[in-house]
Design a protein around this nucleic acid. Sequence first.
DNA 1: TATGAATGAGGCTTCATTCAT
DNA 2: AATGAATGAAGCCTCATTCAT
Lengths: 186, 186, 186, 186
Amino acid sequence: MPKIVDHDAKREELLEPCLALFATKGFHALSMRKISEALGVTTGTLYHYFDGKLALFEQMIDRVIKSDVEAALQEVPADQSWPIKLLNLSRYLGQREGRFAQIIHVTLDYKRYEGESSKSLTDKVLNTYLQTISSQLSIEDRTQLDALFSLILGVIVYRDLNPEASPIEQQFWALQKIGLEITKSI
Amino acid sequence: MPKIVDHDAKREELLEPCLALFATKGFHALSMRKISEALGVTTGTLYHYFDGKLALFEQMIDRVIKSDVEAALQEVPADQSWPIKLLNLSRYLGQREGRFAQIIHVTLDYKRYEGESSKSLTDKVLNTYLQTISSQLSIEDRTQLDALFSLILGVIVYRDLNPEASPIEQQFWALQKIGLEITKSI
Amino acid sequence: MPKIVDHDAKREELLEPCLALFATKGFHALSMRKISEALGVTTGTLYHYFDGKLALFEQMIDRVIKSDVEAALQEVPADQSWPIKLLNLSRYLGQREGRFAQIIHVTLDYKRYEGESSKSLTDKVLNTYLQTISSQLSIEDRTQLDALFSLILGVIVYRDLNPEASPIEQQFWALQKIGLEITKSI
Amino acid sequence: MPKIVDHDAKREELLEPCLALFATKGFHALSMRKISEALGVTTGTLYHYFDGKLALFEQMIDRVIKSDVEAALQEVPADQSWPIKLLNLSRYLGQREGRFAQIIHVTLDYKRYEGESSKSLTDKVLNTYLQTISSQLSIEDRTQLDALFSLILGVIVYRDLNPEASPIEQQFWALQKIGLEITKSI
DNA sequence: TATGAATGAGGCTTCATTCAT
DNA sequence: AATGAATGAAGCCTCATTCAT
């Protein structure tokens, strides 16, 4: 069934530039016409490959998280000491922070799109990233995992809002110093 | 004599419920009609008090950040020891995390509204919170300030995406422990 | 293959009845909805073919003056004696005075649409008619051309305001008699 | 009853600047709010003195033609020879062409406002001017009167559309020369 | 497979008007 | 006499989507 393969390949190809579009404009401010123009096709073609705007959006998110996990597995190898792994992580995030900012935007957008009905996909995105971090950094304590994830999320969101903020690696290091001071002061 | 209405007071009154509306739906998905229905007035009335949707939105943000700063000054007093202040901060955040999540949503939305032209308001929001944290927690180092702000931002965003995540105070504490472990392992 | 529709031909077809609509109601009193209803299409279709109300209006004017010039070239041939050409002109005007009244209404309307920014189109309309008259009637003196054009404009406007006014040909002739009397009385 | 006198005086005062407003923007493009702002009152006041936009408009036209006739009677005295009277007329028009252009705009606007129902006021305006011209210039032949009126109308409209057109007096003179040439060529 | 014409609901905004004060 | 808050209809325009080709 060669037709189906082509069909899926074309769909992937159409999806590729969509993350940037949705992240930049937001779901509701981005029209199907703008998407089609950016992709160089007609709206009819878009509806030929996707069941509607929401379906296109969801498939795009699906595609994005899959490719990200693959990349993370390679760039943050698990068989390293703690400080090294954290360093690798911060470098990995620093190299891709623009892309992660896009993913976060898009996920927040989606969460609000239809309240509870969107829960499953949001959870899927979160769990994918949480598990990757957990396994690659060998963090088993749930609270520690949450805290690290919060920090990662926050750094990326903050630097997206304010590009002049300190780089990721510096922020990681500074936070550790704060922790030490507190420990001492107790 | 005109119908007795304090124009500014009425405007404040109309603004009050808008944060929740914008945060829940997003700027573009929330129509002026929906706003007016939620407020129990007509769209004409909305336009009597505001120059348009964007102006309404901006005045709402202005209002919100002012009242937040006032609250923070009271609930996180500056004349305390480091661990106490951090504890107060985490409690303050914990009590209001729903509201802060709304503000973050709304700020991210706004940033994308029209690219660069929105920069000044985004900066105003960020600087207001940064300065409040800096002065109340006596943090002078810029990188440390950025790092703490990232963490706060991240915790709130993460807990908004995943309400089952560990509470704020626990995450703060866990992060400190990670820092210690790393320090030891070096 | 797309639905077979010649885009430009359809646009012409939509434009055709618009002169009468705009002339009868005036630019601001004629809504896009009324236009679409008169044309038997939806407003969406109107916006598919035109960039907006003003663009539709301008293209309509363009279309109208082109077809008028073509008609004038045939019905008021240049290779005739002066009295004959004037007679042809008055007949030509008499046959089409309703249409010319529409064009004048529409042009006056347009001129006020937005002050100076409309100058170019108004000038284009005026110059098109002035040049046609100048060449077909072999009038080289600018003041004479202006005077004849004023008379034509005036007759049409007056007869539009007061349909019982004397016919165009008679007015032309009467004015000539006034001129003679004045000449004699000097 | 002094109140009523004051009431009428205020109404006159409000009406005065309206001709320029309506002529410049057109009936439908000029909102009651803009009128009230230009007059320095509130819309409520406008509705206190007039029964609505159309009533205000009609009373304004009424007021304008009355004051114009008075002026004409003085400036184009009837007891002069033909060429002198025509010269006086052209000067009179030249001095006030801006105002006449406003009146014409406003009359054309009104004519289209509601088709036949507006006929009486349009006729009133026309007859007022026609009779004034007829009596002051001693023109009895209806066709001659129409022709002269058309010319006057046309010169004013044309010069409003194209301010660089030849001055009124020159156009009057040029038209007479055309008439002579035609007479000779017969 | 791919087109783009067509739709009708809904977007933001302005309007003429009313009425409590 | 005068205000200006309030209304709801209507303005222009864009939207996601469908469907004949």
